[in-house]
């Protein structure tokens, strides 16, 4: 997963491309892992549920550098995960694009799992049982009942996962370093400019991030306005 550096590309544009690529791939992986995990948590009744929920939520409270520190150790060739990766791919995992994607997935996981889990819990079993009694298999029920009804939560989860990954700094710094075209993302480029007292360039990156994040979050809130969802009474319509 190498980003090919183009010689005459502006370093900040290159950082933007790296950032978007990292956030895009991370979001796809997050949706693929987060959806079954959220489903599992929503349906789980065992006592271990609280522990798994806490584990998923950990990145919300932990300094990103703590996560980054442990990942750095695990990714290095001295530890088993790093060794396995090196044997399988022939490349070192630490300070690679793959490393920052794996780090981002863990770091943004709660932003995807929590809205989905809440949506699945609200949906309940009533409509799914009704669909089963009409002959729909589990996959069929997911695509014809769950997905259309919780669509807004899926969009929210993906957007939050994406936005949060764009905004990360600590984890990337610890496990990615600062390799242009590979691990140098916008937040790190910004840090570089400030360190070099290049405030003009720092301003450009900062204000673009502020505006684009604001636009994205506004869209999410627009999508989740209560009027959109309140009509859908998941427990069956007669009660409502």
């Amino acid at each position: 997963m190498k980003v090919t550096p183009v010689n005459n590309t502006h370093p900040d544009i290159l950082a933007l491309i790296t950032t978007l690529k990292m956030a895009g791939i991370t979001t796809i992986i997050l949706m693929l892992i987060g959806t079954p995990l959220a489903w599992f948590l929503a349906k789980m009744q065992s006592r271990a549920k609280v522990f798994i929920e806490a584990l998923v939520a950990l990145p919300l409270v932990l300094p990103p550098t703590v996560l980054g520190f442990y990942l750095l150790l695990l990714f290095s060739p001295q530890y088993l995960p790093g060794q396995i990766w090196q044997q399988a791919t022939g490349q070192q995992l630490a300070f690679s694009f793959s490393a920052i994607v794996i780090g981002s997935v863990l770091y943004s996981l709660p932003f995807v799992v929590q809205p989905l889990q809440k949506a699945f819990e609200q949906l309940g079993d009533d409509l799914l049982e009704a669909a089963a009694m009409l002959g729909a298999s589990a996959f069929d029920r997911f695509f014809t009942i769950v997905l259309p009804i919780t669509k807004a939560s899926f969009i929210t989860a993906a957007s939050l996962g994406f936005a949060h990954t764009v905004g990360e700094f600590g984890v990337v710094l610890m496990i990615g370093g600062n390799i242009p075209g590979e691990t140098r993302v916008l937040s790190i480029a910004l840090f570089d400019h400030v360190e070099a007292f290049d405030y003009a360039q720092a301003h450009i990156i900062s204000i673009s991030l502020v505006i684009s994040s604001l636009v994205l979050l506004s869209l999410i809130y627009l999508l989740n306005r209560p009027t959109k969802n309140k009509r859908i009474n998941q427990r069956g319509l007669i009660d409502g």
Partner: peptide
Amino acid sequence: APQQRNIGLVFQNSRLFPHLSVEDNLHYG
């Protein structure tokens, strides 16, 4: 599994699919 039993069930609460029209609800099964 319930979907393979070919048994129908009408619940106390109608449990219609809120994202589908009446006609599409009827066609679902």
